[in-house]
Structures are given as structure tokens and as C-alpha cells.
Simulated assay, not measured.
Amino acid sequence: MKQYLKRYAQNFDYPLFFTVLLLSLFGLIMIYSSSIMVAIAIKGKAPDYYYHKQVINLTVAFLGFLAAAFFPYKHYANKKVMLILTAVLVVLFTWVKVAGNGDEAGIGSKSWISVPGFGNFQPSEYAKLFIILYFAAAFYRKGQKYTLEKLQPTEIFYPIFLWILVVAGVAFETDLGASIILCGIAVCVVAASGIPFKTFWKFLGVLGAFGGVIFGILWLFKGDMLTDNRMGRIKSYINPFNYESGSGHQVVNSYYAIGGGGLEGRGLGQSIQKLGYLPEPQTDFIMAIIMEELGIWGVLVVLGGLGFIVYKGFSIALRTKDPLARMIAAGIASWIGWQSFINLGGVTGLIPLTGVTLPFISYGGTSIIILSLAMGILMNVSMFEKIERRKTQS
């Protein structure tokens, strides 16, 4: 055991670890700064209410990171492990369907479940990590049986079908942001699997056909999915100032925060928009508060850290010779990339709002815990890649 831990310590990816740690601590500071008014005026709690809750979330997340970092990633290809992960997904989706909750007037989404002793949990966050591991394991096993070069889309019917069910389940929760991320993740994992280019396009065709059928069914229930809140976001996308008192309120005040911060920012804790103008500034719109208080320097810290994690994930995927490791690393990197783009795009008005949090920065227990598990898995992949590389060099 001692020798095992020593080998891991020698190959520990310290740049990746400290980048995640820096972002998480930076996010903790900004959560405290941005949530003071919300905690006092809306929750009737102490000013550091959200700060203390996030400290607990980070503690649990750190333990999850360590557990995932020292759990060999190759075990995720084991059928029993995947069966357990699938069973957890089914339980969570059934739970949220039967007893889910959400602020329909605020976020237009019913996607949370109350876990006794834990608090709120969002199954769609778990679904993101599950799709990465399930697709990677499925393609890895199929590749060992048929070789990926000869793999046909019809031979991976079950992974495609399960993916469609997961996306449909998340979409029925009206969590469209997570649905988009799940689509991007699946495509990136398959692209990293090593299948030929022509087969990849055939796969996209099959995926599109299944997706078209499912979303055709979803369209029949558009009254449930396209809530007034969500329709308002779409209408206010082109010119939110026309809907400043309604659906465009968040984006307009995000613009005020960004413009008010300028290059240098107003100073840490000096945001104006967090004083009741920008709803829930500690979650989806925390980047607007960062821009207002810290200016370009705060933006560079966040974008630099997230960019490095995405770069690290894809560089690991390119270096490793193990298809399973390559797909997992590429899937995690694409997840961080897609989610960051969707969040920042919504804050800046580049794309319509979807209610997606900013990785490692926004307040949220489910998000930081699941992301930390993913980072632990990526750390494990990185360590094994280093070990294998040293073996080939010696």
C-alpha cells in the first residue's frame, strides 16, 4: 500500500490539482461577496450563509476528488461498475420525476430532489459524468470485441438509446442547458473513440435520427417545456432592453455590471448590481459580479483556469494510447468547455439564457461535488498516462 501511494504521489498532476483548487477558492471568495444581500434580504440569514454552505460543499467535494483520483479509471469499463452507476441514474431520475422540486417562477425548471441530510441534489449534473463514463466504457468494450475501425453504428444501439433517454429525461425537467451539454459531451467522446471518420458521420446520422424522433415527441409537449419564463428568454435574446422589466431583466443588469466594472473593476465587495438588481448573483450570473468588482483581472483568472483545465484534458487525451483513457479525458474536457461557454454566453448575451452554472465558481453543492469527482477521474487518467509513458521510455 505504501509503495502504491508513493507511485501515485510521484505521478500526481500538481498543475491540474492547484488549478482546480485555485478556481474553487476564488469561487468561494466571490460567492461570499456576491451573496451577502441575497442571504440577508431574501433568505433572512447571516451575511455568510452561502459562504458557509459552500465551504461544506467544498469539503465533501475534496473528499470525492481524492476517492476518484485513487480509484483506477479502468474499472469504469467493468460491467458491474457500470450497472451500479446506471442504477443510481435510474433512481435519481425516478426520484426527480416523482418528487422533484424547483422554482418554476424563477428558473422555469423542476430538476431538484431533496436528499435527507444532504440538501438539494440535481440529477442532471450526475447525468453529465455518467454519459462520459458510460459512452467511454461502451465504446471501449465494443472496440475490444470488434475493433473500433470496423465498428458500425448499429452495433452500439444500446448506448445511443440510453443517451436519448437521458437527454429526454433532462429535457422533460425543462433543463435545456444540461440537455445541450449532454449532446456535446456524447459527440466529443465518440469523436475521441478512434472510429473512422466515415463511421463517425454514420454514427451522427443514427444519433440524429433517434434524436429527431424523441424531440418530435417532446415538441408535442412543448407546453410543458416552453414555459412562459423560457419563452421570455427567447423573445428577449435579440434586444433584452425591450423586456427590461420582465424577461430581459437579468441580461440587462448583467450588462450594467460588466459595463460598470470596466477594465479595473469597482473593487472586491463593491458591486452595485448584487444589491437586489441581479437575481441570484451567486449562481448563474456570478461572472457578471466578478467583472464588475475585479474587472479584466478577475476575468483572466477565471478564463485562464478553465482554459487550462480544458487544455489539460485534451492534451492527456492526445498523449495516451489507451482508448478508454482518451475518451474519458476528452469527455471531461469537453464538458468543462461546453458548460463554460454556455454560461458565459448567457451572461454576455451571446446566446439565450439557459440557467447553467459556471464550473468551480458558481454556488452549488451538486455542481462542485460532481465536477470534483470528474477532476479526480481526470487526475487518475493523467497519473496512469504518466506511469505508462515512463515505462515505454525506460
Rank of each mutant, 00 (worst) to 15 (best):
5 L>T: 03
8 Y>V: 01
10 Q>N: 08
17 F>G: 09
21 L>A: 13
23 L>M: 12
24 S>I: 04
24 S>T: 15
42 I>A: 13
46 A>V: 10
54 Q>S: 05
57 N>A: 15
63 L>M: 12
68 A>K: 05
74 K>M: 00
77 A>D: 02
78 N>A: 11
78 N>D: 15
81 V>P: 02
82 M>D: 10
88 V>T: 06
90 V>E: 06
91 V>I: 14
96 V>F: 07
97 K>A: 12
101 N>F: 14
105 A>V: 12
108 G>R: 11
111 S>Y: 06
114 S>C: 00
120 N>W: 00
120 N>V: 06
127 A>R: 04
144 Q>H: 11
146 Y>H: 12
148 L>F: 03
151 L>Y: 03
151 L>F: 04
162 L>I: 10
177 G>L: 04
177 G>K: 12
185 I>S: 07
187 V>M: 11
189 V>G: 03
190 V>C: 08
193 S>I: 11
196 P>K: 09
199 T>S: 14
208 G>M: 09
213 V>I: 14
216 G>Y: 05
221 F>G: 03
224 D>C: 00
224 D>F: 07
226 L>F: 13
226 L>M: 14
231 M>G: 06
231 M>R: 13
233 R>L: 09
235 K>T: 09
241 F>S: 07
243 Y>L: 04
253 N>K: 05
255 Y>M: 13
260 G>I: 11
263 L>H: 01
264 E>T: 14
267 G>A: 09
271 S>M: 08
272 I>D: 10
272 I>H: 06
275 L>W: 09
275 L>C: 05
278 L>Y: 06
278 L>C: 03
279 P>Y: 10
280 E>W: 00
283 T>N: 14
284 D>P: 01
286 I>A: 03
287 M>S: 10
288 A>N: 08
299 V>S: 09
304 G>D: 08
305 G>Q: 07
305 G>N: 07
309 I>C: 11
314 F>A: 01
317 A>Y: 09
327 M>V: 12
334 S>A: 15
335 W>F: 15
336 I>Q: 06
336 I>M: 14
337 G>I: 09
346 G>M: 15
349 G>K: 05
350 L>K: 08
352 P>Y: 13
354 T>E: 04
354 T>R: 06
357 T>G: 14
358 L>M: 08
365 G>C: 10
367 S>D: 05
368 I>L: 12
371 L>I: 07
376 G>K: 04
378 L>D: 08
386 K>S: 14
